[in-house]
Amino acid sequence: MAAAIIETSQLTRSYGDICALKPLDLCVPEGEWLTVMGHSGSGKSTLLNLLGGLDRPSGGSITVRGTDLATLSEDGLARFRRDCVGIIFQQHHLIPYLTALENVMMSQYFHSVPDEAEARHALERVGLGHRLKNRPGELSGGEQQRVCIARAIINSPRLLLGDEPTGNLDHKSTTMVMELLRELRDEDRFSIVMVTHNQEVAAWGDRTIHMDDGCLVREERTKGC
């Protein structure tokens, strides 16, 4: 078995007296595609935010690529997000007045320095080579999500997090995005943790965990379709 990219032990997160995440032990090997399912309010986004360094745990430890996120300072967390994580959301969070290309370059800029040729290449990889100069408003939902994927992988993250990335997409676009993710992962060998409500989407992953009320209740192997 490959080394673990993510290891949590007794990880908890509570908001006041709401316990969004109950003590959780989770191990994700390098290169795995993990799907997280569960009812609304079961703590999936909470877990994802902790993994991405967007939030801090209330207790327990969370180690990503050997660094304990709980010990990092704000700057350290920002550096961790910049260097190790790519995130795709259901709402695209693209900047509406920048073109697709500029949106991707913005991500390069926050990482280090922009490089237009490389950004263009990333958009070509997600099949948007012909829509470089279009603003998000001029793109379909599926295309916007692909811009988000280009933006998420541009800084070569080791971990790609997706919070219902296909929640807004129809069946065809969903399949396209999933195929794209599979392809990119096979080339770049990053790990994926993806939250979804969609059984079909879950089937693309290697393993699925089910959550309920902040607890991991069940897990199953799914060998991608």
Partner: peptide, 14 residues
Amino acid sequence: RQGAARRKLLAAFI
């Protein structure tokens, strides 16, 4: 070869 690593080096130099 990796774009992100290349850009990082440039950014550090700049």
